[in-house]
Design a binder for these strands. Structure first.
Length: 458
RNA sequence: GGCCGGGUGGUAGAGUGGCUAUACAGAGGAUUGCAAAUCCUUGGACGUCGGUUCGAUUCCGGCCCCGGCCUCCA
């Protein structure tokens, strides 16, 4: 069996994965800030790490997968005020929506899903530790800052030098900071903020800064030193860099062994993001496409490459998935054959830094084999491996008929098919073709086979 | 400006120092009442200029172009 290789952002190369404890993996992924619906960029991170975890488990690892929820920050507060809604109601609503989106995408729930507001004790403790060790300080305005200069290794993840950072720093007029690079651990409460956003702490009423929650929660859930930490590319700096600084200062231990970062989803060669306003939400996309099509689209490129969101590319993903489901259409999948070259190559592809495009290539070869051989055991293998990528959970019929938008009901379609088949029996092919064309115009494609006529929405 | 990542056939997208990626689209064939699906065969590529090499799309360097981070962002 091939060894698992992971591209580590910190070393900028693929490394053979060596777990801290044999057979076990501790994985922490930065989740979303819940003040809006998840978009396709979030979907990519969810789907990539879900696939990664499925693969690790298939390889026999005992995985503890932790993905946090940021449920307190400026944007949440502002959005709640804007809407005249309580923070709690707002975040609860979007957390539910996120879970709904994940279920649609066949994203399995993480083992733990810590929320910042539920780990306030750990956050406070870590800040106190940092203050005690002298790598954090209380500023005149009541904020608590981390002193970047006190962490000599700062920049080791994102490969930045302090001088360069200073040179490029945008003008951040914050007189309270001793150094412009320092970042906030605790934000002092302001009078206009809702009571819900204020926690009492030894260093004053306020709320945590963004970075500290991940250090506190990952340490609590996985310990001070764990295997893998992941997230979107944009979290590399400053978020993850800051996590390293805080955590290592606080615990004195090496924080994380492998850093994985997922590439962006783009639109017209531009990053999809909330600030640019060019995002599509998951729920919007799956109104028009089967959720597995979106998942296939997201996995059809390597996770570190950018992927371009477009209707064209979604259509391509749909065609790919049709190819796979097509192989399963006339066959009852049986128990998957074991010990095949297909599975070995599939595993090897995923072991190679989660090379999902390569894994898909194996699936297509397998699908061709299924089409030719009509072997239930091969079909079973196709389903098994497909599900490892989080697809092929549906029945082919349901998949091919899933597209919304066709005007005809299934009964009407069946009736027309019957009429056509009668015409064919009567050798009235003109009439038969007329019905075919009619259905085609309504988005229904007919497939005549030995066992009768099947149909699909196209 | 500093630091990263990338430029592969019509499209999407892997990969490799010399040997078929894969999918859709294209061409030819088998099959079909006609189609579709399926199977077989097939054309088509590695931004640019140099270097290393017997040989580079693959290694090295310059250049051009694209994206990202340096501010909240998955």
């Amino acid at each position: 069996m091939s060894e698992l290789q992971i591209y580590n952002t910190e070393s900028r190369r693929k490394e053979t994965f060596k777990p801290i404890q044999p057979g076990k993996v501790g994985l922490y992924v930065c989740g979303v800030t819940v003040y809006d619906y998840c978009h396709v960029g979030h979907a990519r991170v969810m789907v990539v790490f879900d696939t990664f975890v499925r693969h690790l488990r298939a390889q026999g690892y005992d995985v503890k997968y932790v993905r946090n929820i940021t449920d307190i920050d400026d944007k949440i507060i502002n959005r709640a005020l804007e809407r005249g809604e309580s923070i709690n109601a707002l975040t609860a609503r979007f957390i539910d929506a996120m879970h709904e989106d994940e279920r649609a995408l066949n994203v399995l729930p993480p083992d733990e899903e810590p929320r910042a507001t539920e780990y306030m004790q750990d956050i406070l403790q870590m800040i106190e530790t940092l203050l005690g060790k002298g790598c954090a300080y209380r500023a005149d305005n009541g904020d608590v800052y981390f002193s970047v200069r006190d962490f000599p290794d700062y920049g080791r993840l994102s490969h930045k030098k302090l001088e360069d950072l200073e040179a490029g720093a945008r003008i951040d007029v914050n007189a309270a900071k001793k150094d412009p690079l320092d970042f906030v651990l605790w934000k002092a409460a302001k009078p206009e903020e809702p009571e819900e956003a204020k926690w009492s702490a030894p260093f004053g009423l306020g709320r945590p800064g963004w970075h500290i929650e991940c250090s506190a929660m990952s340490t609590r859930c996985l310990g001070p030193h764990f295997d893998i930490h992941g997230g979107g590319m944009d979290l590399q700096f400053p978020h993850h860099e800051n996590e390293i600084a805080q955590s290592e200062c606080a615990t004195g231990e090496h924080f994380v062994n492998y850093w994985m970062h997922v590439g962006f989803v783009r639109i017209n060669d531009e990053k999809m993001s909330k600030s640019l306003g060019n995002f599509f939400t998951i729920r919007d996309v799956i109104k028009a496409y089967h959720p597995e099509v979106l998942r296939t689209f997201l996995l059809s490129a390597h996770y570190r490459s950018p992927v371009n969101y477009s209707e064209d590319n979604l259509e391509k993903a749909k065609a790919e998935l049709q190819r796979l489901y097509g192989a399963l259409e006339n066959i009852m999948p049986g128990e998957a054959v074991a010990d095949t070259d297909y599975e070995r190559r599939f595993d090897a592809a995923l072991n190679d830094d989660l090379n999902t495009p390569q894994a898909f290539a194996v699936l297509f070869e397998l699908a061709r084999d299924v089409n030719k051989s009509q072997e239930p055991a091969l079909a079973g293998l196709l389903v098994k491996l497909g599900q490892r990528l989080g697809i092929l959970y549906d029945t082919p019929e349901a998949f091919f008929r899933s597209d919304a938008g066709a005007d005809l009901s299934e009964e009407e379609i069946e009736r027309l098919i019957e009429a056509r088949n009668q015409a064919r029996k009567d050798r009235d092919f003109a009439r038969a073709d007329q019905i075919r064309d009619e259905l085609k115009a309504a988005g229904i494609e007919l497939l005549d086979g030995p066992e009768g006529t099947r149909w699909r929405r196209v």
